[in-house]
């Protein structure tokens, strides 16, 4: 286990339980991935709040090559055309820069990502604390390096916290790929391309609640158990990093 508090940049990885990485049939032998990580080791996470000064709250996240900015605006008055609502609305939108992907302008599935982002966050926000108004969450993927959606979700919940939107807990998200018989956590683009299945979990550690879970590919039940356990553990550690990022920001004297 490589994560020890105090090292920079901080990494997080789920505790490898009794199960050692099985004989991998994947890329290299002896359980090392193309970028030198172990199967159950996440990429180094760099998080920073206050990336955009014009926004109510914002955050920047960099997980390996995946770089994301999220800005949060509001709560502001809902559009006139919308019906009266005694709970607040959450509006999420995910977009890719044209240069985010290898082939220009191929950032895919924005619409789906936006709806998953919405579903992952709405359970964490106290929507009744801002009736009749809308909070906008805009995510921009500057570089897509794999596991984009979980990075967007974690970064968005940090940005919401930075904006002072009331939440039950921070939402941490981690994804996992199933490649052949082995599970690899926090996959990079190359691994995602060859994956047989993927599992993404978003989790609020303090309340122990899964806000969103998306699985595709072919999974046996024990494998889902194992994958979920790995993701839960990684989410808990990621949430710790997110929390310390917020604390740092609050402690440091504001530069003006």
């Amino acid at each position: 286990m490589s994560s020890r508090a105090g090292t920079t940049p901080s990494t997080y990885s789920p505790s490898t339980q009794k199960k050692k990485p099985q004989k991998p049939t994947f890329n290299d032998s002896n359980g090392v991935r193309s970028d030198g990580r172990g199967f159950y080791q996440c990429r180094p996470a760099y998080l920073k709040t206050g990336a955009v000064s014009a926004a109510g709250g914002s955050a920047y996240a960099e997980f390996g090559n995946t770089k994301v900015i999220v800005s949060v605006f509001g709560p502001r008055e809902s559009k006139k055309a919308m019906m009266y609502s005694n709970v607040g609305r959450l509006n999420c939108s995910v977009s890719y820069t044209p240069f985010a992907t290898q082939v220009r302008g191929q950032g895919s599935e924005h619409k789906e990502y936006s709806s998953v982002l919405h579903k992952a966050l709405e359970g964490a926000i106290l929507l009744e604390s801002f009736p009749k108004t809308t909070v906008d969450v805009f995510a921009l993927v500057m570089e897509s390096g794999g596991s984009d959606l979980p990075v967007i979700i974690s970064c968005a919940s940090l940005a919401l916290a930075d904006a002072g939107i009331m939440m039950y807990d921070l939402v941490a998200a981690v994804s996992l790929s199933c490649v052949g018989p082995s599970l690899v956590i926090d996959p990079v683009l190359e691994e995602e391309r060859w994956q047989d299945g993927s599992l993404m979990l978003t989790y609020m550690p303090c309340r122990s609640e899964v806000t969103q879970l998306a699985v595709n590919g072919e999974w046996t039940t024990p494998k889902i158990h194992e994958g979920m356990e790995l993701c839960l553990d990684a989410c808990k550690k990621l949430a710790g990093i997110m929390r310390s990022c917020l604390k740092e920001e609050a402690d440091s004297p504001s530069i003006q």
């Binding site: 579903k119 359970g123 309340r207 122990s208 899964v210 806000t211 999974w219 039940t221 889902i224």
Partner: peptide, 28 residues
């Protein structure tokens, strides 16, 4: 779920979070 009992996809709707143990119970 396919005929072999393998899980081919999973998606969650609705805002409220659920406990991980309940997720596993729902799957079974």
């Amino acid at each position: 779920i396919n005929r072999k009992g393998l899980i081919c996809g999973l998606t969650k709707r609705g805002g409220a979070g659920v406990d991980p143990s309940i997720v596993l119970d729902m799957i079974s």
